[in-house]
């Protein structure tokens, strides 16, 4: 892909599960950039439909039952491609990402011909406020990701990623749960996609801490990953 990016051909996919309290704020920060926004409601108990009425440009897709973040992301990616997306960005619904980072995520895709960019909170100082335990878990997760996928990244399980149309077509997520983050790395490796890490901010608010992954949960993700390797 060459030439500057037309922002209206960039689709931001937001997997949504019960983040009704913050979703409006998250979208409000993205919209000034003129990106297209797809919210995939993964079977939330209360549909965000009422909130999203105020955002006529935003696409809302709804899973009838809760399948998991990986499944919601894949649904959003497929829909974005169907709408003719040139670039697809994954973005968490809980407000931990900064919409202003998206532009930097997209830059290597057309300037350096990268296929995928992965956000990292550890590439520069002062980009995150994760607790020490969380940092330790992320370090272990990095190592596990490396052992499984051969990609040694500075960050793991960062929900902010950008991909070209070509990469979005190749990355077909089968892990419905949280193991999709590692599966994406696996698919990058498998398809020989060119990837780059980009520094991006992660701000854990009280809200996103509550919604985020607990330490205990990461053990489950690891287990899913082993099973994925066994059965795919």
């Amino acid at each position: 892909m060459s030439g500057p990016i037309v922002n209206s051909s960039v689709f931001i996919v937001i997997p949504f599960y019960n983040e009704n309290a913050v979703i409006a704020e998250v979208i409000n920060k993205i919209l000034p950039w003129d990106y297209r926004v797809i919210v995939v409601d993964d079977g939330s108990t209360i549909s965000p439909h009422e909130i999203l009425k105020n955002f006529p440009g935003v696409f809302l897709l709804r899973h009838k039952v809760n399948l998991g973040q990986g499944a919601a992301l894949q649904t959003g990616i497929e829909y974005a491609l169907k709408q003719g997306a040139e670039y697809v960005v994954s973005f968490d619904a809980d407000g931990q990402h900064d919409a202003d980072d998206i532009a930097a995520m997209l830059l290597p895709l057309y300037r350096e011909n990268a296929d995928v960019t992965l956000a990292s909170r550890f590439l520069e100082k002062g980009l995150h406020n994760a607790s020490l335990i969380k940092q330790l878990v992320l370090k272990i997760a990095r190592l596990i990701n490396f052992l499984f996928t051969g990609l040694y990244l500075t960050d793991a399980h960062n929900g902010l990623r950008a991909m070209s149309q070509r990469a979005a077509q190749k990355i077909s997520i089968k892990e419905n749960g949280m193991a999709h983050a590692s599966e994406i790395l696996f698919l990058i490796k498998q398809n020989g996609l060119k990837y780059k890490e980009v520094p991006a901010r992660i701000i854990y608010t009280g809200y996103s801490m509550k919604k985020g992954q607990s330490v205990f949960n990461s053990i489950r993700i690891f287990f899913d990953l082993v099973l994925h390797k066994l059965f795919e």
Binding site: P56, G57, L67, A71
Partner: peptide, 21 residues
């Protein structure tokens, strides 16, 4: 299989709901 069905349903009904765009 279930994921496939639910995904198809989600994408199809989004297409019908033109109020989203």
């Amino acid at each position: 299989i279930i994921t496939g069905i639910i995904r198809k349903d989600a994408i199809d009904s989004a297409d019908q709901n033109k109020n989203t765009q």
